[in-house]
Amino acid sequence: MSEIAEAVNLEFRYDEEAELIFENLNLSFKQGEMTAILGHNGCGKSTFAKHLNAILLPSGGKVYVDGIDTADETRLFDIRQRVGMVFQNPDNQIVATIVEEDVAFALENLGGPPQEIRRRVDEALQAVGMYKYRLHAPHQLSGGQKQRVAIAGIIAMRPKCIVLDEPTAMLDPVGRNKVMKTVKKLNEEFGITIILITHYMEEASQCKRVIVMDKGKVLMDDCPKEVFSNVDKLKEVGLDVPQATELVYELNKLGLSLDTHITDENECCEALLKLLS
C-alpha cells in the first residue's frame, strides 16, 4: 500500500520566538487506513492535523501528501482536494444557507461544470445519509446532521483522506454514533483514509491504528488492543481507556487474570462469563 500522508522530521513553531511544538516528528499514513490520534489538550494533535492539508506549513522538515510537498504553493488545491478536513463545531464550517449549496461549495471553488457538481453533490449527500435533507437550512438540523453535511461537503471533492478534528465533541450520543457510523462507512466502502482526532476512547478502539501523542511526540503507535493494554502509561499522560478495558484493569488489580487486550463490551462480557462458569 502506498503512503497518502507522511511527515518527515517535522518541526513547527507558531512564530520565531515561540517554543517548538514538534521536533523530529515522523509519522506516515497508508492509503485506506483508519487511524485515531489521542492526546491530552495542547499535545499538538490539532496542529499536526492542520499540517496535513497545508493550512499550516512546517518550520522544518517536510510533509508530503500523496507524494506532493505541502510547501509547494502551486499545488495547494491539489493537496486540499486530496486531504479534506472536518472540524469540531459543525456550525462554523457551513457556509451556505441551503444544505446542497453548502455541499457544492468546494466543487464550485474548484470550478467544475454544473452538471458534474450536481451529480457529485447528490452522491455525497447519499453517502452520508442526508439526501432527503438537501433543501433544508442548516439551522433546522441537529448537530449530528450538520456534522454529516460538513463531511458531505468534504467528500464531494473525492478526497483520498479525511482528517476529522474531534468531530463528535459537541454532539449528543445519538449524533455521535451516526457520525462515527458514517466515518466508518466511508473508510470501508469507499476506501477513504481516515485520521480521527478524538477524546473518546470508544471511538479510538474502533480504528485499526491508534497514535498517542504527548508534548508533540509520538508516545505510542499500535493497534488499539496493544495501546489500551498499557493502562498505567495512558493514565500518566492524562488519558482514559475504554470502559471495558478499565474494568478488566481494575479486576486484574484485585488478583484476577483477565486478558488485558479487551477493548469492547462484548469481549469483556464473554471473558467474565467464562470466568464465572
Binding site: 466543487l107 464550485e108 470550478g111 454544473p114 457538481i117 453533490v121 468534504i154
Partner: peptide
C-alpha cells in the same frame, strides 16, 4: 472566533475568492 474557524474551513475547501469559480445552480 466563529469567523476565524469559518475562514479555515473555507480554505480547506479550496476557497480562493471568485477566481475560476463556477456555480452548481445555473
Amino acid at each position: 472566533r466563529r469567523a476565524g474557524e469559518l475562514a479555515t474551513a473555507m480554505e480547506c475547501r479550496c476557497y480562493n475568492g471568485g477566481n475560476g469559480r463556477t456555480k452548481m445552480r445555473q
